[in-house]
Design a binder for these strands. Structure first.
Lengths: 211, 211
DNA sequence: CCAATATCACCTAATTAGAGTCATTTTTCG
DNA sequence: CGAAAAATGACTCTAATTAGGTGATATTGG
């Protein structure tokens, strides 16, 4: 058990109090150690190759040029095997999605106490994705398709093919219908979605979760 | 405390043993009660209006015409306020995504024991999304953008506008560049992604998580 | 400084896509 | 069953996009 090397944790957080509070909690554990902590992303990125963090605790709201989302992107480029946990006061849905897209694998709030923080570190070490119930639900809800789509089954099928980049001709070949029929369906789709091009239809479909 | 009405749980599961085992666990709780259990979706849907479930435990692999994913879609149409928890033996990523898209708000395995099942019911009642660490990570990973995109910042920016359904003209207006420049960028994007149309570019972008 | 990026322009030709209107057959659902 | 919805198909015409170039200048990042 003692042979397990401690996981290297990097902290990026501008508030010195939170920084040292988090550092103390992390260092109190047998399984984790703080390799470094910075008040901004730029400094952290400079020393990434020597810090070699297994886990990064990243504040979203950061002073200076780079916020936590941009920083996460860069750290993920330079150190793909580092797992990043976003730390924030906000649970705004757009920010959560942007953070996750940028490469974060967990999302906890700054109000996290001793247990919550260590549990998150444990979770991510085990290959999980620590997040609050609320965040988990937001993420899941983001998957849900609209059960009240105005489109018919066939139209949805065709919209899917459009979203795969297929042309009229390819769609008609794939569905064994004439090109004219594809065009009719697509015209009806456009009219229902109030759009006037394939790309717009795809955008609307994603927005309204139709496919 | 005693005034809280019990949450109505519906079980859809073809294996009679699992069905009764789950039913016993649910009924053992003060907070939940099994309103009914069925071996297939068709029967469950017929009695939805009288069963009025708050929570549905839905088996993915079901005999007969309708599987759990199709069933979830229909139940969500007819009873949008019912929360659906998927129950399965598999943790295949495509199946998980399909289940979530169809409207499930949780995902647990059939090996779930007493505690796990009740915890999942509690979680979903509180507005959370019960799922295993592994599933949570799969879901999060699905968000992650490719940090090694072949596109430049500007190209990515333009690809985003394409994905929003914008035309050449709109893109050039929005970015304060000439239409010819938009075309040049888009030509370069097509060449890098090896596609030949906007829709194909969007499809490729989603596939490779470029935007 | 050099390479990559971003910007702009002009060319020809072919293909695809979009808008409008109409008609027939099949399915679905009350 | 019968009406409505859905799916199929065809025609015309115009607009937009794509394919293939070629070449140039300004800016930026390492």
């Amino acid at each position: 058990m003692s042979s397990e090397p401690k996981k290297r944790v990097l902290i990026i957080e501008d508030d010195p109090e939170i920084r040292s509070s988090f550092a103390m909690i992390v260092d109190s554990s047998q399984k984790f150690t703080v390799v470094n902590s910075y008040g901004n992303c730029e400094d952290a990125i400079k020393h990434l190759h020597t810090d070699k963090p297994d886990i990064v605790l990243m504040d979203v709201e950061l002073p200076g040029g780079m916020n936590g989302i941009q920083g996460t992107k860069i750290i993920k480029e330079k150190s793909p095997n580092s797992d990043i946990i976003m730390v924030t006061v906000y649970e705004d849905s757009e920010m959560v999605y942007e953070a996750l897209k940028s490469g974060a694998s967990g999302y906890i709030t700054k109000s996290a106490n001793y247990m919550e923080l260590l549990t998150a570190l444990e979770e991510i070490t085990k290959g999980g994705a620590p997040m609050s119930s609320k965040i988990a639900r937001m993420v899941i809800d983001n998957f849900h398709l609209n059960p009240n789509s105005p489109l018919t089954k066939r139209e949805t099928e065709i919209l899917q093919l459009i979203a795969e980049g297929k042309t009229y001709t390819q769609i008609s070949e794939e569905l064994f219908i004439s090109k004219e029929t594809s065009k009719t369906h697509i015209k009806n789709i456009y009219s229902k979605l109030q759009v006037r091009s394939k790309s717009e239809a795809i955008a609307k479909a994603n927005q309204d979760k139709l496919i």
